Simulated assay, not measured.
Amino acid sequence: MAIKLEMLRTFRTVAEQGSLGSAAEQLGRTPSAVSMTLALLEDHIGAPLFETDRKNRLTPLGQLVLQESNRATDAFSRSVDAIGRHAVSTAGTVRLAVVPSATVTFLPGIIASFQQQRPDVRLEISDVDSATVRQRVKLDDADIGILSEPVEDATEDTVIYEDDLGIVCRRDGAISDAMADGEACSWQLLLREPFIANPLCHLVAHACLAPLLATCNLEARNTTALLSFVRAGLGATVLPRSAVQHQLDEVSFLRPDDPPTRRQLRKIREKSHHLSPAAEAFWLSL
């Protein structure tokens, strides 16, 4: 008898719950039915998967089978989700994984234009950091990614937008006061206020950034949150000019030249994954 997906799903649930009773309740089955499914799986494999009858500790083989069960059941769930997405959209769904700074600056205009041309396409957008963007595209959890870091693997990578990075601070804070007193516009100004870290800070090649990143006690990834923290007087941070261009009445944007630093947005897709017609159309719109 071949191993069936239901066997792997049952085994995974028992391993995660640590008991037949809890697993049976989650699966909506009786403990005896769950036990029988496990027995069939172990008979097929030819070795026990649990150390004891209590099902609370896996054998080394059981740990390996759990990893494979996770892969198999997760892949099946992704396929079911994809079918569901296509069922609710006449032209399909485009899944996007996007860094936060792009969702509030670059992306809205692209979406507005695309929806005028393709109102029948459903867009699903995840707001995540660059590392997670790469991972989701690689694992086919996203069709297209937009991130702010170069990609060095087999992923197709194209620069689609760039702008200046600079210091964002309150207009009445210590950094703004220093500039009013004639101090040069340098990344060194970040030392005058508490520092709010975010992933874009790593793009700045100035000696003051490394110790600031190592000692700061506040970090955020969402651009809206970062701007809220700055406005609340919690410190200064590093953001692209486009993130604050409509809010300069509340905060200041300073562009140091030691060195001048640009942020690039890149669109990525996994070369081994075939894009749907809808996703291909969105890729070309970027």
Results as ranks from 00 to 15, higher is better:
Asp53Cys: 00
Leu239His: 07
Ala279Ser: 12
Glu183Tyr: 10
Arg269Gly: 05
Leu66Trp: 03
Pro31Gly: 13
Pro31Gln: 10
Gly173Trp: 02
Ala97Trp: 04
Ala97Pro: 10
Thr237Asp: 05
Val133Lys: 02
Val94Trp: 02
Val238Asn: 06
Leu27Lys: 09
Ala205Lys: 15
Gln115Lys: 15
Ala214Val: 01
Thr223His: 00
Pro100Trp: 01
Glu250Phe: 00
Arg269Asp: 02
Leu165Met: 03
Arg134Gly: 10
Ala15Gln: 04
Ala91Lys: 14
Ala205Val: 09
Ala278Lys: 07
Glu219His: 11
Ser242Asp: 12
Leu213Gln: 05
Ser32Ile: 10
Pro240Thr: 11
Ala184Ser: 12
Thr37Met: 09
Lys271Phe: 00
His274Ser: 14
Ser130Glu: 10
Asn198Glu: 08
Glu219Phe: 01
Val151Pro: 00
Thr30Pro: 03
Ser186Glu: 13
Phe282Met: 07
Glu124Ile: 14
Gln135Ile: 03
Val88Asn: 04
Ala142Cys: 04
Cys208Phe: 00
Gly62His: 04
Ala102Glu: 06
Ala39Met: 05
Leu254Asn: 05
Ser101Glu: 15
Ala184Tyr: 01
Gln67Phe: 09
Glu42Val: 09
Ala24Ile: 11
Thr237Arg: 04
Ala102Gln: 09
Gln63Pro: 00
Ala2Gly: 02
Cys216Trp: 01
Arg231Trp: 00
Glu149Leu: 06
Leu20Met: 07
Phe50Pro: 09
Glu149Val: 15
Gln135Glu: 13
Gly92Asp: 11
Gln67Leu: 12
Glu162Thr: 10
Glu6Arg: 11
Cys208Ser: 15
Asp74His: 11
Leu200Cys: 02
Ala142Gly: 09
Glu51Ile: 12
Ala184Lys: 11
Thr105Gly: 12
Ile160Cys: 02
Glu124Gln: 14
